[in-house]
Design a binder for these strands. Structure first.
Length: 573
RNA sequence: CGGGGCGUAGCGCAGUCUGGUAGCGUACUUGUCUGGGGGACAAGGGGUCGCAAGUUCAAAUCUUGCCGUUCCGACCA
């Protein structure tokens, strides 16, 4: 009987005062302390009954919005045969992140890290005609990715719950339509979940394809940097946010000179020694790609963006040069290298910002020396390649020309892609068009990290007492804390009646009928993040009153016992 | 993959240097008192000290190997 499961004495509550030493993120600590999850191994967590209630609520909202957007739920196997992955070449591409397993016949399988291959196989077998298109299939399923470094509890676990959808189309316009539909569905989902989020332009990474956007829950502890414009709707992952170089190069005023920098190898230290701003300095980063040695020039206070760098012609497989390679090509130890006087076979790439600098400071290619007053076209050739290869910084011009960029951090909880024909082509997923001609399907794919959302939500909602869940995903909506439940019949009867009334009104209510002291009940319900609390005590009952407090409020208020049910219902909307 | 840390009760830790009865806090059990913010007192239960080999009269402690885990770096829907 479900009602019994909503009494604390019959439910399973397992809170802890101390979090495990390895939980560094507040959400991870609180999830363990509140007894939502229990660790089995690195990146492997059991969802305890309390945590599962939260996970299921998230899942239900995701499912509801997907269904509303016309997607069809199915469920694919978690274990997938190697041959399917060989067709797209991803058995090798995915590499060690994929958990590979063998059956008793020594046939090879993987535990699915994603399902493009399986769904495309279904599509090529089931879809023959343009009349069947478009179609959008989704599942909510456990995935496994053997992360290099699992951490942060369920936020970067190896086994996790994901909603993944895949759409199939007879035209690019149709793909765009569904993509926009999914964009809207995702916005609806995160809004209903009560989270602060932002959709940003994203790199499509190993999944491949053209357009893609990520949905991020905003949190300072997020692993991703985001750039957004307050004055417009531009927003992008820092990985690909464009850095716009503004203005023109000023004419040279200084002459080039060597200066002693005996111990100064970093731009910051050189700037400090010379008493100039670090934005006057240029750093050189040595790379190797296809046997070619490169120097990448960045302003001293800027940071290299490796994703952008791989998009420069010839650098898709770059690596950082070793110290020997640096000495071999420049005859100088790292720390003092620069672009002046380099040999013909060194290719120089200047970041767009550097290309506009004049009278700058850089390494002299001689030990313990830097150069000041350096200018392109006079002291060294104009750079062979000018490209945007840096991370944007706070205050950069927005690429749409409508203001300045701000930075924040986020937890990636959703990602939508226009895949195009990458998988359908490789796996020969075709249909017959109106003219009876065979055509390759266009595909889109749309993921949501269901289990990660729980962690992200707690990152966003917590205080020194514990979790503050949005109502939409709280394990219980209301908790009734009776004081002296086992001593006072009046308290017992009132609490029980209220519990029954709320249950009958369809409210997720928890009755704390344990013989615990009030402090324990309060501390635990706060830790678990239950949004609404009603305290029933003998003291108030003599006046016909109970006490109500919202989780995020500090002050409680008295409510008439006769009105409390309706009051709660109004709080729940 | 490279470098560091840590493995002792469910959780948090001491004990290891200097070998000699395995401890503390919390959680758990029982009882009494208590009863509006993780209460007090008392009495209890719970451990192959990560695994294996070695040194020794004797190993949580010393040696070697392995395993797990974690942090930093590299890397990553």
């Amino acid at each position: 009987m479900i009602g019994n499961m909503m009494r604390s004495s019959q439910f399973f509550i397992s809170t802890q005062k101390e979090a495990p030493a390895d939980a560094e993120l507040i959400s991870h600590q609180l999830m363990v302390r509140a007894g939502l999850i229990k660790r089995l191994g690195s990146g492997l967590y059991s969802w305890m009954p309390l945590g599962l209630r939260v996970l299921r609520k998230v899942e239900a909202i995701v499912r509801d919005e997907m269904n509303k957007a016309g997607a069809l739920e199915l469920l694919m196997p978690a274990v997938q045969p190697r041959e399917l992955w060989e067709e797209t070449g991803r058995w090798a591409v995915f590499g060690p992140q994929m958990l590979k397993i063998q059956d008793r016949h020594e046939r090879e399988f993987c535990f699915g890290p994603t399902h493009e291959e399986v769904i495309t196989d279904i599509a090529r077998k089931e879809i023959n005609s343009y009349k069947q298109l478009p179609l959008n299939f989704y599942q909510i399923q456990t995935k496994f990715r053997d992360e290099i470094r699992p951490r942060f509890g369920v936020m970067r676990a190896r086994e996790f719950l994901m909603k993944d959808a895949y759409s199939f189309h007879a035209s690019h316009e149709s793909l765009e339509n569904t993509y926009q539909l999914m964009h809207q569905a995702y916005s609806n989902i995160f809004t209903r979940l009560g989270l602060k989020f932002r959709a940003v332009k994203a790199d499509s990474g190993a999944i491949g394809g053209d357009g893609s956007q990520e949905f991020h829950v905003l949190a300072d502890s997020g692993e991703d940097g985001l750039a957004y414009c307050e004055q417009s709707d531009y927003a992008a992952n820092v990985e690909l946010a464009e850095a716009i170089a503004v203005g023109e190069r000023v004419a040279a005023k200084e002459t080039m000179q060597e200066v002693d920098t005996p111990k100064q190898t970093a731009c910051e230290d050189v700037a400090k020694l010379l008493e100039i701003g670090v934005e006057r300095t240029v750093k050189a980063i040595a790379l190797m790609a296809a046997e070619q040695f490169y120097l990448v020039l960045l302003r001293g206070d800027h940071h290299l963006n490796e994703v952008k760098l791989t998009k420069v012609a010839g650098l898709s497989d770059f690596r950082f040069a070793t110290e020997e390679e640096i000495r071999g090509h420049l005859n100088c130890p790292p720390g003092f290298i620069g672009p002046v006087g380099v040999a013909e076979n060194v290719k120089v790439i200047a970041d767009g910002t550097v290309a506009l600098m004049s009278d700058f400071v850089c390494g002299a290619n001689k030990p313990k020396l830097h150069l000041t007053g350096v200018n392109f076209g006079r002291d060294l050739a104009e750079p062979m390649i000018v490209a945007d290869v840096r991370n944007v910084v706070e205050g950069d011009a927005s690429p749409d020309g409508k203001g300045k960029l701000s930075l924040c951090r986020g937890v990636e909880v959703g990602h939508i892609f226009q895949l195009g024909s990458k998988y359908s082509q490789a796996m020969n997923a075709t249909y017959l068009d109106e003219e009876g001609k065979s055509q390759v399907m266009e595909m889109g794919c749309y993921g949501i990290g269901v289990s990660r959302i729980v962690g992200a939500a707690i990152e966003q909602g917590n205080d020194d007492k514990g979790i503050i869940f949005p109502l939409s995903m709280a394990p219980f909506s209301v908790v009734i804390c009776p004081i002296g439940f086992h001593k006072s019949d009046a308290v017992k009867d009132a609490a029980h009646q209220l519990y029954q009334d709320l249950l009958q009104a369809g409210v997720d209510v928890l009755l704390d009928d344990r013989a615990e002291r009030p402090g324990v009940m309060f501390a635990e319900s706060d830790l678990m993040g239950i949004p609404h609390r009603i305290v029933v005590g003998e003291r108030g009952l003599t006046e016909g009153q109970v006490e109500y407090k919202a989780r995020q409020q500090t002050e409680a208020q008295n409510v008439n016992l006769t009105e409390v049910k309706n009051y709660i219902l109004s709080q729940l909307n």
